[in-house]
Computed example of a mutant assay.
Amino acid sequence: MKPLCELLQITRYGMGDGDEELGIKLIANYLRLLDEDSRLPSFIALYNGGVKLLAQNSPVIEQMKKLEERGVKIIACGTCLNYYSIADNIQVGIKGTMMDIITLQTNADKVINL
């Protein structure tokens, strides 16, 4: 039986709409709890403001590094990295293309959007 391929997509700097400080607290807690869980996604794709979570001064960079160390593949939209001028500043994951993200979405058995 083929293992389940799950894709977690993060599209904003934080989690949910509303107060940015609360959104950062929520995504930090989500990623921490995800790291403590045995059920990890196969991939995390970040685009739009979500790519900022991979930058050097990100408040969740340590959680992202831990997830990658546990085998989660992290991919960031290259166009988005360039737009925010942080392409040379990401601390975890790889720079990908929109076609990479489309391929992940198409091949995933389950897609979770944050």
Results as ranks from 00 to 15, higher is better:
Ile90Asn: 03
Tyr13Phe: 10
Met1Ala: 03
Asp35Glu: 10
Val92Gln: 01
Leu104Gly: 03
Gly18Phe: 09
Ala55Glu: 05
Gln105His: 13
Ser85Lys: 06
Thr11Lys: 07
Asp88His: 08
Cys5Ser: 14
Lys66Val: 04
Met1Lys: 09
Lys66Trp: 02
Ile61Glu: 14
Lys25His: 09
Lys52Glu: 00
Arg39Asn: 12
Glu20Gly: 04
Leu46Asn: 06
Tyr84Asp: 01
Tyr83Lys: 05
Cys5Ala: 09
Asn29Glu: 08
Asp109Val: 02
Arg12Val: 13
Leu46Tyr: 03
Lys2Ala: 03
Met64Asn: 07
Ala45Glu: 12
Ile24Lys: 08
Cys80Trp: 11
Lys65Val: 03
Val92His: 05
Leu8Trp: 01
Met99Val: 14
Gly71Ser: 11
Leu22Ser: 14
Arg70Ser: 06
Leu26Pro: 01
Ser42Arg: 09
Lys66Cys: 05
Glu6Asp: 02
Ile44Glu: 07
Val72His: 11
Lys2Pro: 06
Leu8Ala: 03
Gly96Pro: 11
Gly16Met: 08
Tyr30Gln: 08
Gln9Phe: 00
Tyr84Gln: 07
Glu6Asn: 01
Ala28Ile: 05
Ile24Met: 08
Glu62Ala: 14
Gly50Gln: 10
Arg39Ser: 06
Leu26Arg: 01
Ile94Val: 15
Cys5Gln: 07
Lys25Ser: 10
Gln105Arg: 09
Gln56His: 00
Lys95Gln: 13
Lys66His: 04
Asn48Ala: 14
Asn57Arg: 03
Arg70Cys: 07
Gly93Leu: 11
Ile61Pro: 05
Phe43Trp: 12
Leu114Glu: 10
Ile94Gln: 14
Leu4Glu: 04
Leu40Asn: 04
Leu67Ala: 01
Leu34Trp: 06
Met1Pro: 00
Ile90Lys: 03
Leu104Phe: 14
Leu4Ile: 06
Ile61Val: 15
Val111Met: 03
Val92Ile: 15
Gly14His: 09
Lys65Asp: 09
Lys95Asp: 10
Asn89Asp: 15
Glu69Leu: 04
Lys95Ile: 15
Leu33Tyr: 01
Asn113Ser: 13
Asp17His: 15
Ala108Asn: 07
Cys5Tyr: 09
Glu21Pro: 03
Glu21Ile: 14
Asp19Asn: 11
Asp37Arg: 06
Leu7Met: 05
